[in-house]
Amino acid sequence: MVQPLNYLRETASQTAGLYVHIGLIPKQVGFDIFENQLGETMVTPQTKGERITIEGRVFDATGTPLCDVLLEIWQANAEGRYNHPEDNQDKPVDPDFRGWGRIGSHFDTGVYRFETIKPGVVRGRNARAMAPHINFWIVARGINIGLNTRMYFSDETEANAKDPVLNLIELKKRRQTLIADRQERDGEVVYTFDIHLQGDQETVFFDI
C-alpha cells in the first residue's frame, strides 16, 4: 500500500438534454420567469469594437441541422483582453463588454446567431500571439460532454497562419473547419460558422 492521494474526483458530465432551454434560455420556450436572461445581450452602444454577427448551424452526421443545440461563446474584447481578474496582459478591460454569450439554435431552421464585436489578439503560451478567435462550448441532447472549439476569422489570413493552436492541427485541410467566412450583408459584417459534429467536414474539437 502507498499513501492515498486524496484528490476529489470530478463530477461527471451528463447531456444537457432536450429541455435545456427551460434552464438556461427560458425565453426561447416562451417562459417569462427571470427578469434578466443571462448571455442574451453581449454588446451595448458603449461597447468598443467592430460590430459583427456570427451565424451558422450545427449539423449531425446525416447533414441535418440540430434544432435543439445550445451554444455559449467566450471571447476577449476589441483590445484582446478577457474580462477576468486572471488576465494580466497590459491591456484595458472594456467595462461594457463581458465577452460571454449564450443562444439556442432556432427550433425550425437550426440557425444560431450572436451579435458581438470582433476580438483582438490575445497572448498565448510562451508569449506567442494567438490570432483573434472566439471560444465555443456546445451542448445538446445526444452530446454527453460539452464540446469545445474555436472560431477564427477569414480576414486574418496572416495571423491565422502563425496561430499556435491552428498549427497544432496536423491535417491542414481540417484547419479550415475553424475559420468563419466574412461577408458584408446590408452594411453589416456577418461571419458564417457552421459546425459539423461528425462526417467528412467534422469540426476540430479540443480537449482543453
Binding site: 452526421a61 445526444g142 452530446i143 464540446l147 467534422e202 469540426t203 476540430v204 474539437f205 479540443f206
Partner: peptide, 14 residues
C-alpha cells in the same frame, strides 16, 4: 441520440 451527434476524429489536446 449519440449515434449521429458524436465526433469520430480524435480531440485535439490543448
Amino acid at each position: 441520440t449519440d449515434v449521429t451527434r458524436s465526433y469520430k476524429y480524435a480531440l485535439l489536446s490543448l
